[in-house]
Amino acid sequence: MSTTELPRIAALPAAEEAATPAPRPRRMGDVVTHGVLILGVLLFALPLWIVIMGSTHDAASIGRGEVPLLPGAHAIENYAGAWAGGTSATIRVPVAVMMLNSVVMATAIAVGKIAISLISAYAVVFFRFPGRMLAFWAIFITLMLPVEVRIFPTFKVVSDLGMMDSYAGLIVPLIASATATLLFRQFFMTIPDEFVEAAKIDGAGPMRFFWDVALPLSRTNMAALFVILFVYGWNQYLWPLLVTTSGNVETIVVGIVKMIGSEANTEWNIVMATTVLALLPPVAVVLLMQRWFVKGLTDTEK
């Protein structure tokens, strides 16, 4: 059989290529492209899918090791339970409280970073004053001091200032931003001199120019930065872990890991429901503002 089949198969592609040279490899290439991309999408979707499905099952079936690939019947009680009661591993701090804390932290970090970077970049670009370059470099150099390398001394400063276990302690130390300042500085440099001259002729002072010209022109940059910084703030882990000592200002990302604890009696169904809740706000922000965010990200970091 093989002796008769083989030559025919071998001859087939050659014959086809002679007849229609272009379309076949192209179609084949497209199939491979779709195949690999679908695999890629699945690689990212599968862990999420399992957690979403798992969050609709009861603790016993997950504990028994039934990996949930289809929806179960316990969605409402799991989400309601997590939202209102948390888990015993996190001293029953409701997930609602953790979510609120994360929303406050992420929003305040994003807005705060944008605000102080905007005004400091404005000062550096639109004025000449002694120490201008020194101030610029001082801000710039913070790029090299991420919170992770100065955790304990920073922790000590925060505790000396009485900011432990408070929103202020969570937010203020993370609010200085070299990247946002650099981005706004770069953008302010592109505002034409004519704008400034026209404003001066019309008798507008620096603050008037800031509110009426510089700020409105920066709107797209601010939107893009908001997405990036909101995600940055929401995803903080090490700093909140150190600064929060009670359940009052516990953030959701830290809360989930505490819920798992040492894996003795972990309420996996509640952990899964909480994970889904923790994912939603940052993923929603990124997807809803995808266009601005992608442009902003590639502009900011280059």
């Binding site: 990302v253 890991v257 997807l287």
Partner: peptide
């Protein structure tokens, strides 16, 4: 693109 929004700690939990 969406996994950009996931915290490292949450990725670990997934």
């Amino acid at each position: 693109i969406w996994p950009y929004a996931i915290a490292p700690a949450v990725a670990a939990v997934l």
